[in-house]
Design a protein around this nucleic acid. Structure first.
Length: 423
DNA sequence: TCTGGGGTCCTAGGACCC
DNA sequence: TCTGGGGTCCTAGGACCC
């Protein structure tokens, strides 16, 4: 049996933990740059606020309904996620974190029926008491069915946060009541495709023949189909090293028009990629730098920068990545001063473990010197904070062109920002 | 005026090999 | 008049997830 632990409205719940006055108010959290609404409390959902709605369009409505609005605070959410996962790890020898707010756990050997349900209640209760984050647990013989169970667990209070699909009767009932688009692995496109063919519920989908599903949705669709039948075949597994790593951002207002500003941003993205690569102990063989103008505006001239460079030897070196990114941007910069770039980013790919780098006979870089310099810089940054020492081209490293007007504090990671309790 | 930021997997088609 | 039968690798595009 598998359990899926899913934090309810995770970002909103994180904000509520540190601000009890929010418990009776609807809450939303915005994407980077205060662009879109990406998390909603149940009360906000009830107001009809859509996932992904542009903030500026919803603003008046949010104010009218006394909705509390927050810029995203990933420092806080990441730390709260870590706490949830740490508590969860005590309940099962197999834990796979699937996203910032979700994890699968193995539940074989923890009993069946009421015994298992009671164990589930312990899990949910422990996390809620230990972190203040409400969670739902779905339990079923496959991961897809565990997702289905969690779906019902969230909707019906009577389950007490734990929903079990452990027999044929419950499976059939659950699938009959679930819209096909709500099945894990069936996205918008495929849902529409299936609807057109008269498949409206998860149950309808399960009644199709395997060959039919294979024909329409390929092998990934067949895997979902089998999972709905109770045959476990999706392996979420321990996440291996990432094959590509992207760091990108949108810029506030109309965007950036000067090469020096975009260059500063791109240098920062490359530095972030270097850090992410080192965290997973890998190097990259190539990098892509991109920047583009707003895709929503037809009144200004559009332009897209996109350049890929290959490294002679796979690297994660900050200086080397930043230099490559800046060089690529400059090589593609049009120089007519006509464009305002709304978004830019750096993708590193072709990754390999840093223990298995293929050397190059004609390597132009002095690797020994590079490694010593990087080690010294990393040591300073471990002590003095992430960007205590950085490359000049990265600029202030305090990004001023990202909007965060509704930010909460770093309650759990900065001693200067912890909650003060008055006597 | 303003519209997020990450990832993975699969397939088809083209280029190449003998 | 007629023109084979295997393979691999790469890329772009599309689908999905949170």
């Amino acid at each position: 049996m598998f359990g899926l632990v899913d934090c309810n409205n995770f970002y909103c719940s994180c904000e509520r933990v540190f601000n009890p006055a929010l418990r009776t108010r609807p809450v939303v959290v915005l994407s980077n740059n205060d662009g879109c609404i990406i998390a909603r409390s149940n009360e906000a959902k009830a107001l009809g606020i859509a996932m992904g709605a542009p903030f500026y369009q919803a603003k008046a409505m949010l104010e009218a309904n006394n909705v509390a609005v927050f810029s995203s605070n990933y420092t806080l959410y990441g730390d709260m996620s870590r706490r949830v996962m740490m508590l969860l790890a005590d309940f099962s020898p197999e834990l796979t974190q699937y996203s910032i707010d979700e994890a699968f756990i193995g539940l074989d050997g923890f009993g069946t029926g009421e015994v298992l349900r009671e164990y589930g209640r312990q899990i949910v209760g422990t996390i809620c008491r230990g972190t203040g984050i409400p969670v739902t647990l779905g339990i079923a013989p496959t991961k897809t069915l565990a997702k289905v169970a969690a779906h019902y667990g969230k909707r019906y209070k009577g389950y007490g946060g734990v929903c079990l699909i452990d027999n044929e009767e419950r499976r059939a009932k659950a699938l009959r009541g679930l819209a096909i688009g709500d099945v894990w692995g069936i996205g918008r496109r495929n849902a529409a495709k299936l609807e057109r063919r008269g498949v409206h519920s998860a149950w309808d989908f399960a009644q199709l023949s395997e060959a039919w599903v294979r024909e329409l949705l390929s092998v990934t669709g067949v895997r979902t189909w089998k999972e709905l039948h109770g045959e476990s075949c999706i392996d979420v597994g321990e996440l291996p090293q990432k094959k590509s790593i992207c760091t990108s951002r949108s810029f506030a207002d109309a965007g950036l028009g000067c090469v020096c500003h975009v260059e500063e941003a791109v240098a920062g993205f490359a530095a972030a990629c270097s850090r992410k690569l080192k965290e997973q102990r890998s190097c990259c063989g190539a990098m892509t730098v991109f920047a583009y103008t707003s895709r929503f505006r037809s009144d200004v001239s559009a332009h897209c920068i996109n350049r890929t460079v290959a490294f002679p030897v796979a690297t994660a070196d900050r200086q080397e990545l930043v230099a490559a990114a800046v060089g690529a941007l400059r090589a593609e910069w049009p120089g007519d001063g006509k464009h305002f770039y709304k978004k830019a980013g750096v993708i590193v790919w072709d990754t390999c473990p840093s223990s298995a780098i293929q050397a190059n006979l004609f390597d132009p870089v002095d690797r020994g010197r590079q490694a010593r310099l990087a080690a010294a810089a990393d040591a300073i940054n471990r002590k003095g904070g992430r960007n205590a020492v950085r490359l000049a081209v990265e600029g202030s490293a305090q990004p001023h062109n990202f909007k965060r007007e509704h930010a909460s504090r770093h309650f759990t990671t900065d001693i200067g920002q912890v909650i003060r309790v008055r006597a």
